[in-house]
Computed example of a mutant assay.
Amino acid sequence: MTYEEFLELVDNADRIPDGLTVHQEALWYDRRGDWQRAHDLIDHLDDRTSARVHAYLHRVEGDMWNARYWYSRAGESPFSGSLDEEWVALVRRLV
Rank of each mutant, 00 (worst) to 15 (best):
H39E: 07
L94H: 01
V91L: 06
V22F: 03
R48H: 14
S72Q: 13
G62A: 00
L94T: 01
L45M: 12
D11Y: 10
V91E: 02
V10K: 04
W70R: 03
D46P: 11
H58C: 06
G19R: 11
A38C: 10
S77R: 13
R92H: 11
A55N: 13
M64W: 12
E5Q: 03
S50F: 00
V10D: 03
Q36D: 10
H39V: 06
L41P: 00
V95M: 06
T49N: 11
E61L: 00
D47K: 10
R68G: 04
H23S: 15
L27V: 02
D34H: 12
V53A: 11
R31K: 14
W35V: 12
P78V: 05
S82F: 08
L20R: 03
T2W: 06
D43Q: 13
A74N: 04
W70Y: 11
E85Y: 09
V22P: 01
T21L: 01
A55I: 10
I16T: 03
G19S: 12
E5R: 04
L94M: 05
A26V: 05
D46H: 15
D47R: 06
Q24V: 14
Y3I: 09
E76P: 07
I42V: 07
E76V: 13
D46R: 14
Y69K: 02
L20I: 00
R93G: 09
A67C: 06
I16K: 00
G75Y: 09
G19A: 12
G33E: 11
Y71N: 01
N12G: 10
Y3S: 07
R48Q: 14
L27S: 00
V95H: 09
D34F: 11
E5F: 07
L57Q: 09
Y56F: 13
W35F: 10
G62H: 00
V53Q: 09
A51T: 03
R31Y: 13
Q24L: 14
D43S: 14
Q24T: 15
N66R: 03
P78F: 08
L83K: 15
Y3M: 08
W28F: 15
I42L: 04
A74G: 05
V53S: 14
T21D: 03
S82Q: 12
D14Q: 01
L9V: 01
E5Y: 04
R59T: 03
L9I: 02
R32W: 06
H23R: 15
F6Y: 07
R31D: 14
W87G: 07
M1N: 08
Q36R: 14
V53W: 07
W35H: 06
P78L: 10
S80K: 07
L7E: 02
V88C: 13
Y69I: 06
E4A: 13
A55M: 12
A55L: 11
M1F: 08
R15A: 07
T49K: 02
V95L: 08
R92D: 13
D46G: 14
Y69R: 05
V95R: 02
R32H: 09
I42Y: 01
T2M: 11
L27K: 02
